[in-house]
């Protein structure tokens, strides 16, 4: 009897291949395909109408899309840099602590333990113009007698969102940079002291190059995170007021699920993935070169 036998390596990989295909490949291909159709959730038959690159052309010429794209980059740039600076400061401070450092490190992680949705609600309350903590505090302290529209004014709303983002995720940087600080060999630091460096010069010329790889790892992780920012914004401002805090994924989510234009939403989604890919590649390049600097190679 003829029996076709699969090569053992394929046989062994098969479970993983099947699971990956079902969970990742199929949805991916389906969504890619649907981005070339006028697919609307409310009209399933529209999935079978091929319209070529129409959705992509529409997205690329849509000023709303580009506004959201730009806003996402602004958020990414400001939030990442702030988080990096604050995280670096926090890590440097914590690394100097001799007693209770473990407890501090654990406490530092607390913001990461909350669901972004809850963080969103929390800051929505804090920045609320009527009952919010911030306005009440400012008024009680007599700093202002105005009602500051934190979540209503476009710029202030963006600020509030960035504030919430930074609050949740600074610890990602702090923890990774702290790990970097622990990994620095003691000798070069001492050599620098003997060579005449002040603490600032030691930090600038020795410590910083050593922790750069860790900063870039944190940047790469967080850039992916922020590029897909959705939940905090959705809760705090819902992309409003009048789309002034609309980010890529709140726009895509709205287009896909509220307007039901899934094909178009998918097309925007694929376009914006390039943003994420760009930042990831960029930071990994930086990471590799920083590691090469240190002779860590590979």
């Amino acid at each position: 009897m003829f029996r076709y036998k699969l090569p053992p390596w394929l046989l062994l990989l098969l479970p993983a291949i099947i699971v990956l295909a079902a969970v990742v490949m199929l949805p991916l291909l389906l969504s890619l395909y649907s981005s070339f159709t006028p697919y609307r959730l409310t009209r399933p038959d529209s999935l079978f109408k091929w319209i070529g690159t129409y959705n992509y052309e529409k997205a690329l010429t849509d000023s709303k899309f580009w506004a959201a794209f730009g806003r996402t980059i602004v958020l990414l740039t400001i939030a990442l840099n702030l988080e990096m600076l604050l995280g670096l400061g926090l890590a440097l401070l914590v690394s100097k602590v001799t007693r209770g450092q473990r407890a501090l490190r654990t406490m530092m992680m607390f913001p990461m333990m909350f669901s972004p949705v809850l963080v969103g609600f929390q800051f929505k309350f804090i920045f609320n113009d009527n009952v919010g903590l911030v306005n009440n505090a400012l008024q009680s302290l007599g700093i202002t007698d105005q009602v500051i529209p934190w979540l209503v004014d476009g710029k202030l709303a963006m600020f509030s969102i960035i504030f919430a983002e930074v609050w949740t995720s600074t610890s990602v940087f702090a923890i990774l940079i702290l790990a970097g600080l622990y990994a620095i060999p003691k000798d070069p630091l001492e050599a620098a002291k003997v060579d005449g460096c002040t603490s600032w010069q030691t930090f600038r010329h020795i410590t910083l190059p050593f922790i750069m790889p860790f900063i870039y790892i944190a940047m790469a992780i967080r850039s992916l995170d922020v590029a897909r920012a959705y939940d905090i914004v959705q809760i705090m401002t819902n992309g409003g007021p009048a789309r002034r805090t609309e980010l890529l994924w709140t726009l895509i989510g709205r287009t896909g699920y509220v307007d039901a234009k899934m094909g178009y939403a998918n097309a925007m989604g694929y376009t914006s993935i390039f943003l994420a890919i760009f930042f990831t590649v960029y930071f990994f390049r930086k990471l590799t070169s920083a590691r090469n600097e240190l002779g860590m190679g590979g």
Partner: peptide, 20 residues
């Protein structure tokens, strides 16, 4: 005095070169 004010040089066991 901190090391930098002592006008000394030191050679370390592990060389302690600046790798970057």
């Amino acid at each position: 005095l901190p090391p930098r004010a002592r006008n000394i040089s030191m050679v370390f066991q592990n060389y302690a070169l600046y790798p970057h």
